[in-house]
Amino acid sequence: MTNSLLNFLHMGGYGFYVWGSYGSVLAFLLAQWFLPWRRWQKYQNEQKLTHEQNS
C-alpha cells in the first residue's frame, strides 16, 4: 500500500515536474475562483448590514 503510494508520488522519476505542474494549476484555479467569490460574499454581507441599519 505504502509502496504503491510512493510509486504514484514518484511518477517514474518525474514527480517534481508532474506535481509541480498540477500544483501550480490547482493553486491558480482555486485563487481565481476564491477571490471573486469572497468579494461577492463580502458585498452581500455589507448590503445586508446596511439594509438592517436602515430598517
Binding site: 511518477m11 517514474g12 518525474y14 515536474y17 508532474v18 505542474s21 498540477y22
Partner: peptide, 28 residues
C-alpha cells in the same frame, strides 16, 4: 479529467509518467 490523467491512463511508451503534464498543459 484529473483522475483519468493521473491514474486511469497508462504511462506513455517514450515519456513515461512525465507525459501526464499534458492534462494540465494542453487545457491551459
Amino acid at each position: 479529467g484529473i483522475i483519468g490523467g493521473l491514474i486511469l491512463v497508462p504511462a506513455d511508451y517514450l515519456q513515461g509518467d512525465g507525459f501526464r503534464i499534458i492534462y494540465v498543459h494542453a487545457p491551459c
